[in-house]
Protein backbone atom coordinates (compact mmCIF):
# COMPACT_ATOMS: atom_id res chain seq x y z
CA UNK A 1 0.00 0.00 0.00
CA UNK A 2 2.86 2.38 0.87
CA UNK A 3 4.33 1.87 -2.58
CA UNK A 4 0.98 2.58 -4.25
CA UNK A 5 0.47 5.76 -2.25
CA UNK A 6 3.95 6.98 -3.16
CA UNK A 7 2.88 7.15 -6.77
CA UNK A 8 0.72 10.17 -5.92
CA UNK A 9 2.26 13.59 -6.58
CA UNK A 10 3.76 15.29 -3.54
CA UNK A 11 3.80 12.07 -1.50
CA UNK A 12 7.22 10.83 -0.43
CA UNK A 13 8.09 7.70 1.53
CA UNK A 14 7.37 9.29 4.92
CA UNK A 15 3.99 10.75 3.99
CA UNK A 16 3.04 7.48 2.30
CA UNK A 17 3.83 5.61 5.49
CA UNK A 18 1.80 8.03 7.57
CA UNK A 19 -1.17 7.79 5.22
CA UNK A 20 -0.98 4.00 5.19
CA UNK A 21 -0.94 3.77 8.99
CA UNK A 22 -3.80 6.23 9.19
CA UNK A 23 -5.88 4.17 6.76
CA UNK A 24 -5.18 0.97 8.70
CA UNK A 25 -6.43 2.62 11.90
CA UNK A 26 -9.77 3.63 10.40
CA UNK A 27 -12.90 1.50 10.35
CA UNK A 28 -13.54 -0.62 7.30
CA UNK A 29 -16.60 1.47 6.37
CA UNK A 30 -14.60 4.60 6.32
CA UNK A 31 -11.90 3.08 4.14
CA UNK A 32 -14.60 1.72 1.85
CA UNK A 33 -15.96 5.27 1.55
CA UNK A 34 -12.59 6.67 0.51
CA UNK A 35 -11.99 3.88 -2.00
CA UNK A 36 -15.48 4.24 -3.47
CA UNK A 37 -15.06 8.01 -3.82
CA UNK A 38 -11.83 7.49 -5.75
CA UNK A 39 -13.36 4.93 -8.08
CA UNK A 40 -16.56 6.94 -8.60
CA UNK A 41 -14.61 10.05 -9.46
CA UNK A 42 -12.43 8.16 -11.90
CA UNK A 43 -15.46 6.55 -13.54
CA UNK A 44 -17.64 9.61 -13.74
CA UNK A 45 -15.30 12.47 -14.38
CA UNK A 46 -14.26 12.82 -17.96
CA UNK A 47 -13.56 15.72 -20.24
CA UNK A 48 -15.96 18.34 -21.52
CA UNK A 49 -16.56 17.74 -25.23
CA UNK A 50 -16.27 21.43 -25.96
CA UNK A 51 -13.46 22.82 -23.84
CA UNK A 52 -11.77 19.65 -22.44
CA UNK A 53 -12.00 20.86 -18.86
CA UNK A 54 -12.68 18.10 -16.30
CA UNK A 55 -16.38 17.42 -16.17
CA UNK A 56 -18.82 14.76 -14.94
CA UNK A 57 -21.06 15.46 -17.92
CA UNK A 58 -20.38 15.67 -21.62
CA UNK A 59 -20.48 19.46 -21.39
CA UNK A 60 -18.94 21.17 -18.38
CA UNK A 61 -20.69 23.65 -16.11
CA UNK A 62 -18.78 26.58 -17.51
CA UNK A 63 -19.66 25.76 -21.11
CA UNK A 64 -23.31 25.23 -20.13
CA UNK A 65 -23.60 28.49 -18.25
CA UNK A 66 -25.58 30.89 -20.45
CA UNK A 67 -24.61 33.92 -18.40
CA UNK A 68 -21.01 33.58 -19.42
CA UNK A 69 -19.67 35.43 -22.39
CA UNK A 70 -19.15 32.97 -25.22
CA UNK A 71 -17.40 35.48 -27.47
CA UNK A 72 -14.10 35.08 -25.59
CA UNK A 73 -12.13 31.88 -25.12
CA UNK A 74 -9.27 31.69 -22.66
CA UNK A 75 -6.74 29.02 -23.65
CA UNK A 76 -4.84 27.25 -20.86
CA UNK A 77 -2.60 24.20 -20.76
CA UNK A 78 -4.47 22.18 -18.12
CA UNK A 79 -7.52 22.06 -15.88
CA UNK A 80 -5.63 23.36 -12.86
CA UNK A 81 -5.22 26.65 -14.68
CA UNK A 82 -9.00 26.89 -15.18
CA UNK A 83 -9.49 26.42 -11.45
CA UNK A 84 -6.88 29.10 -10.69
CA UNK A 85 -8.43 31.58 -13.11
CA UNK A 86 -11.94 30.85 -11.82
CA UNK A 87 -10.85 31.78 -8.32
CA UNK A 88 -10.14 35.30 -9.51
CA UNK A 89 -13.79 35.78 -10.53
CA UNK A 90 -12.45 38.33 -12.99
CA UNK A 91 -13.09 36.36 -16.13
CA UNK A 92 -16.56 35.49 -17.33
CA UNK A 93 -15.80 34.04 -20.75
CA UNK A 94 -15.27 30.43 -21.76
CA UNK A 95 -12.16 28.26 -21.60
CA UNK A 96 -10.26 25.83 -23.72
CA UNK A 97 -7.90 23.30 -22.12
CA UNK A 98 -5.07 22.13 -24.38
CA UNK A 99 -4.00 19.18 -22.25
CA UNK A 100 -0.31 20.16 -22.23
CA UNK A 101 2.19 22.20 -24.19
CA UNK A 102 4.24 21.49 -27.30
CA UNK A 103 7.31 19.50 -26.28
CA UNK A 104 9.08 17.43 -28.96
CA UNK A 105 11.24 15.80 -26.27
CA UNK A 106 8.14 14.22 -24.75
CA UNK A 107 6.72 13.45 -28.17
CA UNK A 108 4.04 16.11 -27.78
CA UNK A 109 3.33 18.00 -30.96
CA UNK A 110 0.26 20.09 -31.81
CA UNK A 111 -1.58 16.94 -32.92
CA UNK A 112 -1.39 15.54 -29.37
CA UNK A 113 -3.08 18.63 -27.95
CA UNK A 114 -6.72 19.71 -28.27
CA UNK A 115 -5.87 22.25 -30.92
CA UNK A 116 -8.12 21.22 -33.82
CA UNK A 117 -11.29 21.65 -31.71
CA UNK A 118 -9.97 25.05 -30.63
CA UNK A 119 -9.53 26.15 -34.24
CA UNK A 120 -13.09 25.05 -34.99
CA UNK A 121 -14.39 27.03 -32.04
CA UNK A 122 -12.33 30.11 -32.86
CA UNK A 123 -13.47 30.14 -36.48
CA UNK A 124 -17.14 30.52 -35.58
CA UNK A 125 -18.39 34.09 -36.02
CA UNK A 126 -19.54 34.15 -32.40
CA UNK A 127 -15.98 34.17 -31.07
CA UNK A 128 -14.38 37.59 -31.08
CA UNK A 129 -11.28 37.09 -28.95
CA UNK A 130 -8.97 34.27 -27.94
CA UNK A 131 -6.84 34.94 -24.86
CA UNK A 132 -3.71 32.83 -24.54
CA UNK A 133 -2.89 32.17 -20.87
CA UNK A 134 -0.04 29.68 -21.01
CA UNK A 135 2.96 29.66 -18.63
CA UNK A 136 6.02 31.47 -20.00
CA UNK A 137 8.33 28.45 -20.03
CA UNK A 138 10.24 27.68 -23.22
CA UNK A 139 7.60 25.11 -24.18
CA UNK A 140 4.73 27.37 -23.17
CA UNK A 141 6.11 30.25 -25.21
CA UNK A 142 6.45 28.03 -28.26
CA UNK A 143 2.86 26.88 -27.85
CA UNK A 144 1.74 30.50 -27.54
CA UNK A 145 3.63 31.43 -30.72
CA UNK A 146 2.13 28.48 -32.55
CA UNK A 147 -1.43 29.25 -31.53
CA UNK A 148 -0.96 32.92 -32.30
CA UNK A 149 -0.02 32.17 -35.90
CA UNK A 150 -2.71 29.56 -36.26
CA UNK A 151 -5.62 31.57 -34.90
CA UNK A 152 -4.84 35.05 -36.16
CA UNK A 153 -6.67 34.59 -39.49
CA UNK A 154 -9.88 33.80 -37.64
CA UNK A 155 -10.11 36.16 -34.73
CA UNK A 156 -8.37 38.60 -32.44
CA UNK A 157 -5.66 36.86 -30.40
CA UNK A 158 -4.24 38.28 -27.18
CA UNK A 159 -1.98 36.95 -24.47
CA UNK A 160 -2.03 37.68 -20.78
CA UNK A 161 0.60 40.06 -19.44
CA UNK A 162 3.48 38.84 -17.32
CA UNK A 163 5.19 40.89 -14.71
CA UNK A 164 5.32 41.93 -11.14
CA UNK A 165 3.20 40.33 -8.46
CA UNK A 166 0.80 42.60 -6.58
CA UNK A 167 2.06 43.92 -3.28
CA UNK A 168 5.61 43.20 -4.33
CA UNK A 169 8.33 45.78 -4.23
CA UNK A 170 10.18 46.48 -7.44
CA UNK A 171 13.53 46.02 -5.71
CA UNK A 172 12.62 42.49 -4.67
CA UNK A 173 11.56 41.36 -8.11
CA UNK A 174 14.01 39.04 -9.79
CA UNK A 175 15.78 40.08 -12.96
CA UNK A 176 13.92 37.70 -15.22
CA UNK A 177 10.49 38.89 -14.19
CA UNK A 178 11.60 42.49 -14.26
CA UNK A 179 13.02 42.16 -17.77
CA UNK A 180 9.78 40.60 -18.93
CA UNK A 181 7.73 43.29 -17.28
CA UNK A 182 9.82 45.94 -19.04
CA UNK A 183 9.35 44.17 -22.36
CA UNK A 184 5.59 44.21 -21.92
CA UNK A 185 5.33 47.79 -20.65
CA UNK A 186 2.47 49.97 -21.86
CA UNK A 187 1.44 53.56 -22.03
CA UNK A 188 -0.65 54.98 -19.22
CA UNK A 189 -4.18 55.69 -20.31
Amino acid sequence: MIEQLQKLPGVGPKTAQRLALHILNRSEDEVQGIAQALIDAKKQVGFCQTCFHLSAQSTCEICRNRDRDSSTICVVSDSRDVIALEKTREYDGKYHVLGGVISPMDGIGPEQLHIQPLVRRASTPEVREVILAISPSVEGETTTLYLGQLLKPFTKVTRIAFGLPMGGDLEYADEVTLARALEGRRELD
Binding site: I102, P104, G109, P110, V138, E141, T142, L145, Y146, Q149
Partner: peptide, 9 residues
Protein backbone atom coordinates in the same frame (compact mmCIF):
# COMPACT_ATOMS: atom_id res chain seq x y z
CA UNK B 1 5.84 25.24 -39.31
CA UNK B 2 6.76 23.70 -35.96
CA UNK B 3 10.43 23.88 -36.73
CA UNK B 4 10.07 27.56 -37.59
CA UNK B 5 8.82 28.17 -34.05
CA UNK B 6 11.87 26.51 -32.54
CA UNK B 7 14.07 28.47 -34.95
CA UNK B 8 12.62 31.64 -33.52
CA UNK B 9 13.14 30.41 -29.94
Amino acid sequence: AQLALWDAQ
